[in-house]
């Protein structure tokens, strides 16, 4: 039995003990604790590209988090090359919500310190940065071959 399973069982026991005192507010407590206990986000796709000078890694990831009411997001991270820890929320330069199935964001280093991000159609950008730590970011919509105006 894993630590998380044990915690869930303890939580269930505590909930049952508190039953006579509960109310819809109790649901908020249960879901807050549940979110804390649930498994971390599931990475369902990832690509990584090192900068020409070898200083940075650009990482694009599709992450499915939570359960039925969870989220699916695509993130682009900028992390120092050879970083030993996994990228964290404070290293995100772009947060996006794929409309249906996630399609990877294209990454290209256009210079030592310019990262070009090619955004597939149907991607809803919720946050993006223009520059960070001396690296600037260019955003370009994906050109669909055969589409009007496409290359």
């Amino acid at each position: 039995m894993t630590k998380r399973t044990r915690l869930l069982l303890v939580m269930t026991l505590v909930c049952c003990m508190l039953a006579p005192f509960s109310s819809p507010f109790f649901g908020i407590v249960v879901f807050s604790l549940g979110g804390w206990l649930d498994r971390p986000c599931e990475i369902i796709g990832t690509e990584q590209l090192r900068s020409p000078d070898g200083k940075w890694d650009a990482i694009v990831r599709a992450e499915a988090c939570g359960g039925a009411i969870g989220t699916l997001n695509e993130y682009v991270y900028l992390v120092p090359a050879w970083a030993t820890t996994p990228p964290g929320p404070d290293q995100r330069v772009l947060e996006a919500d794929p409309v249906i199935n996630p399609r990877p964001i294209g990454l290209t280093w256009s210079g030592q310190d310019v990262l070009t991000l090619t955004l597939p159609t149907g991607l809803h950008i919720t946050r993006r940065e223009q520059a960070r730590d001396g690296v600037s970011f260019l955003y370009r919509p994906e050109q669909i071959s055969g589409a009007p105006g496409g290359q």
Binding site: P24, T71, P89, E95
Partner: peptide, 23 residues
């Protein structure tokens, strides 16, 4: 039997724990 407000708060609290985002 939950009100909409409670459902949204419950789902939001859950999401804040599993995947907090500034957006």
């Amino acid at each position: 039997g939950y009100s909409l407000q409670f459902l949204l708060v419950m789902a939001g609290r859950y999401n804040r724990k599993v995947n907090p985002k500034s957006s």
